[in-house]
Simulated scan of single mutants.
Amino acid sequence: MGQSASHFQFTKSKYIPTLKVLQAAMFDFRYDPHAHEEYAFGVTLSGRQDFFSGGQYHRSPPGNVIIFNPDDVHDGQPGGDHTLDYVMLYIHPDQVKPLFDSALGQEKTVSFRYDSTLVQDMALRERITNVARLITTSTGSQIDQENALYQVIERITQLGGTYQPGYISTRPDALLGLAKEYIHAHLDTDLSLEGISQAAHLSKFHFLRLFRQQLGITPYQYVINCRVNAACSALEQGASLSEVTFRYGFTDLSHFNRRFKRIYGVTPYQYQRHLIC
């Protein structure tokens, strides 16, 4: 591939719900700050991946593994003058909680977060790329893919992370949790800062400051991000572009296209074509 364009290809597993693979070649593209509801496990294949996440600037050379927990805000761009090639697995937390339980030897579902964003581990790198290969080449049976995914989760738990039987939050986390719940419940309505801050039991000023401090993006950016993610899920279920555009408050298809592409690298139409045969 030449160095004049970027390319993104999404492929979903035929057997494991919510499991998707992104194969990306980036040269002239930069992601807006955003977050996914899923875990994301990736490998930098060539070039360098530069991104900001968790209050730090990261550089991922070839061979590095990148791990984003659900709701980890990050951006991303190629570093240097060479095309960045990478592969990323996306999987919803509900789908892998039983796998984390098993790997950790826990009887009840736990909340798991990996503590580092960049990991240098050959075994994990090979396990992630193996899952990606099975899905993108449509090879192997259901049990092959399930076992390959479990091998990824097992290795991640061996390398570290934090877990607990239930989510124990600090007061700021709890208040922002109320705000995020309100946002997710009203994505198809005309949201306002006043309404969101009231849901969090905070003044608008304190809410804005706390939200930016804790999440690294503004409430407005978070709302747009959540609407794009919700639209993404609807497209995967076969909803039409026009239905999704107006359901989630985008003024028109052009506006929806711009917002969607800044997070997923492709237009909503292209994304739906990738994942719905």
Rank of each mutant, 00 (worst) to 15 (best):
G160F: 07
A179R: 04
D144T: 03
S141E: 10
Q145N: 02
E194C: 05
R133S: 13
L134A: 11
Q142T: 07
A174H: 08
E126T: 12
A179V: 09
T139H: 12
H186K: 08
Q151P: 06
T136M: 12
P165W: 04
Y167N: 09
L159G: 00
D115S: 15
S197T: 11
L118K: 11
D188P: 12
P172Q: 09
T117H: 12
K180Y: 08
G140P: 04
R209T: 11
L124T: 11
H201G: 06
A174D: 08
Q221H: 11
T189P: 06
Q221S: 05
V119G: 00
E126H: 15
E181S: 15
T157F: 06
S197Q: 06
Y182F: 14
R127I: 14
R133I: 05
E181G: 12
V131A: 12
I135Q: 07
Q120C: 14
L208P: 07
R113M: 10
A185E: 10
D144I: 05
A179Q: 08
Q120G: 14
H201R: 11
D121F: 11
L149I: 07
M122Y: 13
D188A: 12
R113H: 13
T162H: 04
A200D: 01
R212A: 12
G160H: 06
V131Y: 12
Y222D: 05
R125M: 12
L175V: 13
I156Y: 08
Y167C: 03
Y220I: 01
T136I: 07
A123W: 14
D144G: 05
Y150Q: 09
A174N: 06
L134K: 10
V131T: 09
T162E: 03
Y163W: 05
Q145W: 08
R155W: 04
A123V: 15
D121P: 10
L149N: 01
L175I: 09
R127G: 14
L175S: 02
V131L: 11
T157G: 02
R133P: 00
